[in-house]
C-alpha cells in the first residue's frame, strides 16, 4: 500500500519544529506502525538523511515507551492499544498520516517524536510508594485481601505510564496517571498508613509539573492503552478532599526526608 507521512521533526527541546513529508510506496499491511517507521529510517539513512527519532522498547504494549500522536489520537487508531501494537492494516491505501509527539508542558520534546516523561517519575517520587525497606516481612497471607479489592487495585496498577492520558486530554491533565497510582496503593491494606500524605504530595507534585486540571472529558480513559477507568480520578478526588480538609495536619507530613 501507499502511504503519505507528515512527521513532526524537531531538532532539540528548544528548536522550532515542523512537519516533514515522506512518501512510502510499498508498505506491507502486516507491518506494525513502528516497523514502518524503521523501514522509513533505513531508507533515510541510505539516502544520507537524518532518520526520525522516536521512542520504543518492548514493542508489545507494556513498557509505555512508544508515544506518538497519530492522526490526532495518542497511540493511533486502535482501541486499548499502544503505538507499537498498531498494524498498518488499520490504514488504507493512499492514506495521509500525521505523526506528532505527545504534547504537554510536562513532557518536553527531546527530538522529533521523542519526549521525556520524567515528570511522571517525580509524581511517583512524591508519594507513589509504600515505604518499606528490603528484608524479612510478614507473610503474604498474614493480611488477607479480598479478591474484589485485589482486582480493583490491579485494575489501577495496570497503568504503563506512557502519558497518553496527558496527550489526549484537552487540558493536558495528568489526573488519570496520578489517580491510578493513588487508587492502587490506597485500596490495599498495606497502603493505608501513608494514604493521607500520599495523595496530598502527589497532587501537589502533579500541579508543580505544569499539568492541567480535569474537566472530566474522559478523553484519557478512551486513549489509555490499558483502559484505566476515570473512576480512579473520582477516588483520588475523594481521598484528596478528605485528606486536605478532614484529616489533622499532623498526619499530613511530607514523606520525604528521613
Amino acid at each position: 500500500m501507499r502511504i503519505k507521512l507528515h512527521i513532526w521533526r524537531q531538532n532539540g527541546p528548544q528548536a522550532k519544529g515542523d512537519f516533514e513529508v515522506h512518501q512510502l510506496d510499498d508498505v506491507d499491511e502486516d507491518m506494525s506502525f513502528l516497523e514502518m517507521l524503521d523501514v522509513l529510517n533505513e531508507e533515510i539513512i541510505e539516502s544520507g538523511g537524518d532518520p526520525v527519532t522516536f521512542d520504543s522498547d518492548c514493542r508489545e504494549g507494556i513498557c509505555g515507551a512508544c508515544s506518538c500522536v497519530i492522526n490526532g489520537r495518542p497511540h493511533g487508531p486502535g482501541h486499548k492499544s499502544t503505538t507499537c501494537q498498531i498494524r498498518m492494516r488499520s490504514f488504507n491505501d493512499g492514506d495521509e498520516i500525521w505523526i506528532e509527539p505527545f504534547r504537554s508542558r510536562g513532557f518536553p520534546v527531546v527530538k522529533d517524536l521523542m519526549v521525556d516523561r520524567e515528570a511522571f517519575d517525580r509524581i511517583i517520587r512524591a508519594g507513589g510508594f509504600i515505604s518499606v525497606h528490603s528484608g524479612p516481612k510478614p507473610d503474604a497471607n498474614d493480611i488477607p485481601i479480598p479478591h474484589r479489592i485485589a482486582e480493583e487495585a490491579m485494575d489501577a496498577a495496570e497503568c504503563i505510564g506512557c502519558g497518553a492520558c496527558v496527550a489526549a486530554c484537552p487540558n493536558g491533565s495528568a489526573m488519570l496517571f496520578t489517580g491510578a497510582k493513588v487508587s492502587h496503593l490506597g485500596l490495599l491494606p498495606q497502603g493505608q498508613p501513608e494514604r493521607v500524605s500520599r495523595v496530598k504530595s502527589m497532587v501537589d507534585q502533579m500541579d508543580d509539573e505544569g499539568f492541567g486540571a480535569c474537566t472530566n472529558y474522559a478523553e484519557c480513559q478512551d486513549a489509555c492503552p490499558k483502559g484505566i477507568s476515570i473512576r480512579f480520578i473520582g477516588r483520588m478526588n475523594r481521598d484528596y478532599l478528605k485528606a486536605s480538609l478532614c484529616e489533622p495536619e499532623k498526619v499530613q507530613g511530607q514523606l520525604k526526608g528521613h
Partner: peptide, 20 residues
Amino acid sequence: GIIDQATAQGVPFAREYGGN
C-alpha cells in the same frame, strides 16, 4: 521472602476469594 517483600510494597498478587 520475595513474595512477602512484594506484598508489603503493594504488589497486587492475584487473590482467592478468601483473600489468600
